[in-house]
Every structure is written in C-alpha cells, then in structure tokens.
Design a protein around this nucleic acid. Structure first.
Lengths: 247, 247
DNA sequence: TTCAGCGACATTGTATACAGAAGCCGCTCG
DNA sequence: CGAGCGGCTTCTGTATACAATGTCGCTGAA
C-alpha cells in the first residue's frame, strides 16, 4: 500500500539546514560556513554585518539571518551589542563534542556494519585513497575535510536524518576544535584507524567497528593540546585571584 | 530532597536555543515553543508574523528571528512566500525521529547506569509519581511533558552538552509526532517501562537499561498510527501515478 | 453549473533608517 | 608623565517602509 521508497527517501533532502532561510541567505551561510570549517577564518575572528553585506551585495538583514543560523550551529558566537565571532570552543566544549561523537558514532558503526553495501564500502575506500594522498602531500586542509567525509559516509549508511545532521554539526565543530587545539599532524592522522574501521565494516563485524570507532575518537581527543588558550591573559587573572585569596 | 518544581520545569531550562538571540526574541521563541509542545498549537497551524508581533508587542523582525530559530529546530516549517506553520512531521520523519532516539538514548542509558547518583534516582522516582498522577487524572498534556522530562533527566546524567540538546530537540519533535499520529492514551503510556528503566539504572545494570530503553522506544513507535494523513489527497495522486504507469 | 482567467488583498522578502550600547581615543587634570 | 574621564565613532538592535509573490474570490463564458 505504501511505496517502499518511503523507507529510503531522504527525510529532508531539500533544505541545506540554514534555519529555514532560502536562496541568498543560504549562500551567505554556506560561504561563511565553508570558510570557517576550512580554517580560512580562524576562531575568534570578528564577523561584521555590514562588511559581509557589502561582500555579498546583500543587506544586513540577510547577513544577520545567516549569522543567526551559524550561531544556532555553534559555529559562530553572537554576543549582545558586541557582534558575531567565529566560535572558539572552550576545552569543556571540545570534550563535550568528542564525548558526543564517541557515543553517537560508536552506536552508528554498530548499526552500519549490518547495513553497509558494496557501493558504500567502495566509497569509503576511495575516500581513504584521497586521504592518503592529502597526507602525503601535506595538505592538512584536505585531510581534515576528507576525514570528516569518511565519518559522514559511515553515518549516512544508517540513513539521512536528524542523526546524520547532528553528526555533521559535531564534525564541523570538531574542525574548530582542531584549529584551536590541534598540534602537528596528529589530529588528521587517524588514517590507519580509518582503514581498520573500513575493514571491520566490510567484514560486517559491528562490535569490532564500534570499538574501533570509540578508540579512534579517543585517540583524536588524546592528541589534542587541551590546555586553555590565551594563557597569558588567563594566567594574570588566575594569579591575581590566588594572590587575593592568600592570607 | 529534590524540589518538586523540577517536575514543571521546561525541558530546556537554561539555553533557549534561539540561535544566539537575546531577551525578547527568546521570549517569543519560548512561548511559541511551549504552545506547540503542549499541543495548544496543532501541527499545520499557520503562524502569521504580524499577528504574533501584535501579541508580543514586537515588530516582525523579532518574530521572524524566533520563527527562524524554531524552523531550525524543525518545530516550525517556513515556506518561501507562504509563511510559517507548525511542523507536521511526515511518517518518514516520525520514523527517523524515533530511530535517532533509539540509537542515542540506548547508548545514553548504558552510560548513565554507571554514573547515576542517589539524587538523580530520587528525581526519576519523583517524576514517575507525578506521571502516575497525571495518568490517573487523565491529564494527557502533563503526562507527555513528564515523560519527556523523564527521558531528559536520564540524559542529563551524562552531562549537559550537545548530546542533551540534541535529545531535547528530538523529544520536542516527538511531541509533534504524537499530536499527529498518537492514538488514545497509548503513546504516553510507557509508565511501567519507565519504572523498569529506573530500576535498571538504580541497579547499575547498564546493559539491561539500554535494552529496556530500546524496547520502550520501539513500543512507543509501534503504538503510533503511522498512516499518512490527508489520505484522500495522497490517494488521488497515487492512483493517478499508477494509472499513468499502466501500459 | 463549472471552470478558466483575472484582479485585489494578504503576507512575506528585503532594504534602510534610526536609536542605543560598547569601545576607543584624545583631553584634561593631578 | 600617568590616570581618569567625556565625547566620538562604530556597530548592533529594532522598527518600518517598500517590493515581490502567493492566495482567494469574483466574473464571465462555455
């Protein structure tokens, strides 16, 4: 009675998740989003409405709309009467992001191992090849993007829906975390683990895939330099506070 | 030990998640949000900007900001040049929402069993008492809200972060699904299962809690009347499509 | 009676104007 | 010479005006 297409139909294919806005605002959203995720706009960078408006030949109205959507995704922070800035996740935020990813992605891996098909395996292998290339030629930017693609490809095996979108949001925030706390090439370098993950998925071994995924994310977070930034300034405050507390 | 006010506290007390907006827009957001989740505004209801603006003594600017935030949460649908409507999740959306909840919440239950403390157990028990009361006096609205609170309380054992917010969003969308597809008292009626869940958590039996959670959510979805609404119209389209495909 | 065409109305999309807050810079005074 | 302060500038917050577009009802003819 009900066509089977319902099961596989994308839950929301049309909307690029800009907060419901259309065309022009979405373009601004996407452009700024890409710039941030690609580390062309660093955390903390100020995003001035009129500036962006001039750049996109749009009024502040549209720019604000895009900025609000970005703020909703925690990619941008809006401070009252101060403006919008590229988000700078705190250490606690970073831990939260990876805690969430660990929980969600290990469950996804378990699920995906049962459902994954040949085409998807092939897609994963292709991504791994590109990732290898990017690492070989030292293209950090591409490596990070491909790593995200890899994780998203696994997630999409379970369908395109709320969960996938949530993970996409976590992955883009991860990019910010890496920009802030990543050191050297460590963070993009789960390449071997990615391969092991693809193997486990291909073997249909959900339990192993799930465990590998958890481990992989643990390693990423372990490789971060999770110390608070702005040490100098923070230290001043801390030192003064300690000084005052002393008898 | 635990103030009873918790029972009536909104699902998401701290951050109204309005896309970073402040004060007035957040108030509009919250008011409309509550009205929708409490089934005072039915799915499909049109939300006219100027109307809401008059109601809140605010200009359309603020109303739009709130509506966009709601749209981002998929509580409201914005159609270009047509306006904003209370979202009416499709059958596929409903399945997606509960698939996501099942995956996330069973993992959360596993985690929470290890971390839950006496105070949190007590909070769960208190919620169950209130839920019992609500069911006894046939207060469907309260029962649904308390059920959501119960799930959120478990989630909060694992911390307050992205994951908790995501679940809050899924739970509010569940409320819409129940409004559309819920039949009788079935959907609010996981009361016994909630109790078993609390027991498992108290016993620290993560595996059992996780399994119970998955089962519980399966039961909720099984109790929905997941048939497409607007059957007449859809049938016409379907029939014509079949007609055309015929040789 | 029904349906197509058309036009007025209602509602949203976008731009802009104005007000208010926060930060900055130079000025003055100790 | 340095610190405190007041005006100025810049940017955001909100309202409103105008343009674009969809909706609905009316009219007229088949």
């Amino acid at each position: 009675m009900w066509p089977s297409s319902i099961a596989t139909a994308p839950v929301e294919a049309r909307e690029p998740e800009t907060g419901g806005r259309n065309g022009r605002a979405a373009a601004i959203y996407r452009c700024v989003f890409d710039a941030i995720v690609d580390h062309r706009l660093p955390p903390g960078a100020k995003l001035i409405e009129e500036q962006l408006g001039d750049l996109f030949n749009a009024s502040r109205t549209l720019v604000r709309s895009a900025l609000q959507a970005l703020a909703h995704d925690h990619i941008v922070t809006i401070e009252r009467h101060r403006g919008a800035f590229v988000a700078a996740p705190s250490v606690a935020d970073a831990q939260d992001i990876f805690f969430s990813r660990r929980l969600v992605e290990s469950a996804i891996a378990l699920e995906a191992a049962d459902r994954i098909g040949a085409a998807e395996i092939a897609a994963l292998r292709a991504l791994l090849t590109h990732e290898r290339d990017a690492l070989d030629r030292g293209d950090r930017r591409a490596a990070i993007r491909l790593s995200g693609e890899f994780h998203m490809t696994i997630a999409r095996v379970t369908g395109e829906g709320a969960l996938t979108r949530f993970l996409a949001s976590l992955i883009s925030r991860s990019s910010l975390v890496i920009a802030l706390y990543g050191r050297g090439q460590a963070s993009a370098c789960g390449h071997d683990e990615h391969m092991a993950l693809a193997d486990a998925l291909e073997a249909g071994d959900g339990a192993r895939a799930s465990a590998l995924m958890a481990l992989h994310l643990d390693h990423i977070v372990a490789d971060l330099a999770l110390a608070p930034r702005d040490e100098a300034q923070l230290d001043v405050v801390e030192i003064l506070r300690e000084q005052l507390a002393r008898p």
